[in-house]
């Protein structure tokens, strides 16, 4: 494992810690999209089915379990915690799941490496992860008042993807057999979705202000 990959994973992990910390300390999930959290949970469930039939390393297994457990944990807080659930922006978070889930499922059935149940589900998770942030970005645009932790959460999620691209470039040059075009294409799309957010995030940060969206 190279440093880019490790830094990417840690950035991903850190974003989840931030979101749990925000919910736990402020007992609020204001500004967070439950749709995005549900989509991420679906991503983890469909991708990490391989926990049952393949083993890579202790590191991978532990990280997969953390991602699964934390995504269910966040959803539990948003849905069932007495105080937290009252802070959810239900009226603003109107993005429909099927708009993303259906096209990703169809695409996974057409463009995949092998037409088997596990492989199609895995491919579906790759496509869905690429676009799962969209409900969150839409909510961000609507509510505009972004608190620091939510801004940082999205920043570290974006950083995770950017670091994975560096990891792919590194592995492309160091591992002759390392070619995964499908993952790269989805990853580029995913990182691209953050471009606009990054622009405003860095601008606000430079000006020493809270994140402001136009």
């Amino acid at each position: 494992m190279n440093l880019f990959r490790l830094a990417g994973d840690m950035s991903h992990l850190f974003s989840i810690v931030l979101i749990l910390l925000k919910i736990y300390t402020s007992k609020s999930c204001a500004g967070l999209s439950m749709k995005t959290q549900e989509l991420y949970t679906l991503v983890f469930v469909t991708r990490y089915l391989d926990l049952f039939y393949s083993y890579v390393s202790l590191y991978n297994t532990v990280m997969k379990l953390i991602f699964l457990a934390s995504s269910f944990g966040i959803l539990w807080y948003m849905r069932y915690h007495k105080q937290v659930k009252q802070t959810y922006d239900r009226e603003q978070d109107t993005f429909r799941h099927y708009i993303l889930v259906v096209p990703c499922a169809v695409l996974a059935l057409i463009v995949n490496n092998e037409l088997s149940v596990t492989e199609v589900l895995w491919t579906f998770s790759i496509y869905l992860e690429a676009v799962a942030i969209l409900p969150q970005l839409v909510l961000l645009q609507r509510t505009k008042n972004v608190d620091n932790l939510t801004g940082q959460y999205i920043f570290f999620l974006g950083a995770y993807r950017a670091l994975y691209i560096l990891n792919w470039i590194y592995r492309y040059w160091t591992e002759p057999k390392y070619r995964q075009y499908l993952v790269w294409a989805a990853g580029l799309v995913q990182t691209g979705l953050y471009a606009d957010f990054f622009y405003y995030y860095l601008k606000s940060w430079q000006a020493g202000e809270k994140l402001r969206l136009p």
Partner: peptide
Amino acid sequence: AKGGRTKDEL
């Protein structure tokens, strides 16, 4: 890995 799928990333 079949068809270039890399199973060692998260």
